[in-house]
Design a protein around this nucleic acid. Structure first.
Lengths: 218, 218
DNA sequence: CAAATACATACCGACGTGCGGTACTGAAAG
DNA sequence: CTTTCAGTACCGCACGTCGGTATGTATTTG
């Protein structure tokens, strides 16, 4: 295949293909040769020119996965027109209403055969997203009086772990009913921390989302 | 190597060695040959006589890991002298006081390089431990009036996910202070569900445990 | 003795990766 | 505008290792 004048396009092509295959067959059951075969003429040398290992491709893929949602978190975190509690409310409304499939990712991620991918998400949640996005919001909430807790770091972790992992239908698939119950338990948990961030609009959206997932499975 | 008259000893030897290596180097970076080399004369044929694949060894290893703690859960679940809330209380007191290192496992499990192992633990928690051990206890608690919730299944999942994963020092290492804070947040979460299962004895034990872990790291 | 079991040995195809080589690019030099 | 040339995108094969299998053999069991 001819040399590409914009190598970043080649990198993106590799990531697109790798992501799709990782989702379809799992990271471990996707060989580098599989990726090559779906690259349309590119060779093994091309891959190892842009990435130093197969693992390196996975890292890039997961980075691209979390980048978008982290961007959303950053924007909300930096708004100056909302209290801490209102920001949390906004985050959950956004993350629920956002469709899982967008233009980049035409395949709905499936973590059932992807221990490595789940592992990355888990650590991104605890090591990156919670301290960098949720924690500042909780701190602000403490300052402005809209949130009360003695342990903001741990509260941020627990909330995001529940939301990003436990309630994530890509990780633990649930029936519509179960998803709804999870959300109600989550709501009650937040209320236990004095955080009543759930309104009827969010509840409505959740029920919609759950029914969509249910239909896609069949 | 001579044939063993008690093949279960060979199986246990394989599992001992595999477990140690998985913990030291991670599942993926442990080759079958690595296991063989640490078996003291046994060969590849021996391994593939007792296990059908490397993955099969991992399953056996994780089963042995969770068996002990699940046994403890079963005993408490089946006691007839305690209310639901008291059983939960007992479980947490037990799991905190139980030393992580026992005679079988001389290596403290470390999940940082073991996506597969963490994956297994996560699914055992949600698919097995929560519904089979915690859920019946919560149901009993609902019956005897010591626990109140509309969604026992999801509450069981959330509680065990927080306890087994989030608060697990083998998965997310924390300083003594962080562990303590996690526990306090956990406590507040349970209180939000009307469950006040934490007493001063448990708090004391937690602080001890945290300081032990802190020392072992250095 | 025969069947089942507990291993050992030799070997296979597929895998991730390294590397010597090639062909293209874009900018500087003439 | 042409020539030159260093940098790099990409090729494709060779290598060592991997998980797994087929088969052989000694030992135990019934």
């Amino acid at each position: 295949m001819a040399r590409n004048r914009h190598p970043e396009e080649t990198v993106n092509l590799i990531l697109d293909v790798a992501f799709r295959l990782f989702m379809e067959k799992g990271y471990e059951h996707t060989s580098v040769q599989d990726i090559i075969n779906n690259l349309g003429g590119l060779s093994k040398g091309a891959i190892y020119h842009h990435f130093k290992s197969k693992e390196d491709i996975l890292v890039a893929v997961t980075d691209r996965m979390t980048a978008e949602s982290n961007q959303m978190l950053a924007v909300i975190r930096d708004r100056s027109d909302l209290s801490g509690k209102e920001k949390l409310k906004t985050i959950f409304r956004e993350s629920i209403s956002r469709p899982v499939q967008n233009d980049i990712f035409t395949v709905a991620p499936d973590f059932h055969n992807n221990p490595k991918l789940l592992f990355s998400l888990l650590h991104d949640t605890i090591d990156n997203a919670a301290p960098n996005y949720i924690l500042p919001i909780i701190r602000q909430g403490i300052s402005d009086g809209s949130i009360k807790t003695d342990y903001p770091e741990q509260l941020a972790e627990l909330i995001l772990l529940a939301a990003n992992v436990w309630m994530n239908p890509m990780i633990f698939d649930s029936t519509e009913e179960e998803s709804y119950h999870k959300f109600m338990v989550f709501r009650q948990m937040l209320q236990g921390f004095g955080l009543d961030i759930v309104d009827s609009e969010i509840l409505e959206r959740l029920q919609e989302l759950a029914s969509i997932y249910e239909k896609n499975k069949q």
